[in-house]
């Protein structure tokens, strides 16, 4: 288990010190994929870097299983760092060395004999699907391939935790998908615990089980990914989720649609039952679906619909009460 406790990080700035992280705590269970999401400058990268003490926190403790990393002398810290792999946004491969040498670096740091390294590196490269590039220089690889090398390097000492600092933010859409699949596979097959940060909720949604939302150096909300999407609490989270679900109604559609505008959020099973057709049949209203979106997070459906209702005032009121009892959330965007 990886535990960050009351982490504070201050950097000396031009006018006094800048507080990048203001007392953040989190716990990542064994085998869990934990995400931190936030805008750039929220301090999430700084927080992540305290997990292996690339950045030393001004205050707070970092625990890996039963060991407090923040209390270790340099030499023992190095040994513990072998249990924590790290993947970087810009890959951070040594351009002068071959793929083999890059992947071998952590093994050499751990004092593994060269004969074992020669055997282990090809295994790692085949795990990330880059067997044919062992003796290529990173400059000859695509972004996605470079990140695969980065992941192979991070996994070479068989760490129990993998830290991912915006692992897909420098990649195109296709490579992003492939890298997220690879990380998911690493988590499932090798049981590696993952702590990842991203400014994109879509990345967190694909990859993580649990997520913390960070803004201005603080964690403002933490939840299972599905629950965060379905019931965002903090205003900042709501905006993030909104943007991620992309449910802005075009102004023209909004103006041209008569009636009462509702936004309905469905969760779990009721996303699969025909509530709307039931309302039309039994309550005497017309329902026009303007916008809709259903996605599956952890195999659980999350649906959002924007609908226009038309009918008598009494029918409208009845319908709203009927729907309220059957959907997770109902918002009246505009009254008729």
């Amino acid at each position: 288990m990886l535990r960050l406790k009351d982490i504070r990080v201050e950097f000396p700035g031009k006018s006094g010190s800048v507080q990048a992280v203001r007392g953040a705590s989190l716990e990542v269970g064994d085998g869990e994929v934990y995400g931190i999401v936030g805008t750039s400058g929220a301090g999430k990268s700084t927080l992540l870097r305290t997990a292996n003490l690339l950045t030393r926190p001004t205050a707070g403790e970092v625990w890996l299983d039963g060991t407090e990393l923040t209390a270790l002398p340099e030499r023992e810290l190095r040994a513990q760092r072998r249990r924590i792999g790290m993947v970087f946004q810009h890959f951070n491969l040594a351009s002068s060395r071959t793929v083999h040498d890059n992947v071998a670096l952590p093994l050499r740091a751990a004092g593994v004999p060269e004969a074992t390294i020669r055997q282990r590196v090809p295994e790692l490269l085949s795990l990330v699907g880059l067997s044919d590039k062992e003796f290529a220089k990173p400059g000859k690889l695509s972004g996605g391939q470079k990140q695969r090398v980065g992941i192979a390097r991070a996994l070479s000492t068989e760490p129990s935790v993998l830290l991912c600092d915006e692992p897909t933010s420098a990649l195109d859409l296709e490579s992003t998908e492939a890298i997220l699949d690879l990380l998911t596979e690493v988590n499932r097959r090798l049981g590696v615990t993952i702590l990842a940060i991203s400014h994109e909720l879509s990345v967190i949604k694909r990859l993580c089980h649990r997520v913390a939302v960070m803004t201005e150096g603080e964690i403002v909300e933490e939840n299972a990914v599905y629950d965060l999407f379905s019931r965002p609490q903090h205003q900042f989270t709501k905006e993030l989720v909104e943007r991620s679900l992309d449910l802005e109604l075009p102004e023209r559609v909004r103006a041209n649609s008569p009636g009462t505008l509702l936004r309905l959020v469905y969760l779990g099973e009721n996303a699969e039952t025909p509530i709307l057709s039931q309302a039309v049949r039994e309550l005497g209203v017309h329902i026009n679906i303007l916008h809709g979106h259903i996605e599956y997070i952890d195999d659980r459906p999350l649906g959002v619909l924007v609908v226009a209702l038309e009918g008598t005032d009494a029918a409208l009121t009845r319908t709203i009460i009927f729907l309220k009892g059957r959907v997770a959330r109902l918002e009246v965007l505009r009254h008729a």
């Binding site: 792999g85 790290m86 970087f88 040594a94 952590p106 740091a109 980065g150 390097r153």
Partner: peptide, 18 residues
């Protein structure tokens, strides 16, 4: 790149050499 090497637990000497 240097940070990546440090994160692997490499000693100062190894970071310099590698």
């Amino acid at each position: 790149v240097v940070e990546a090497a440090i994160s692997t637990g490499a000693s100062h000497w190894l970071v310099v050499r590698e």
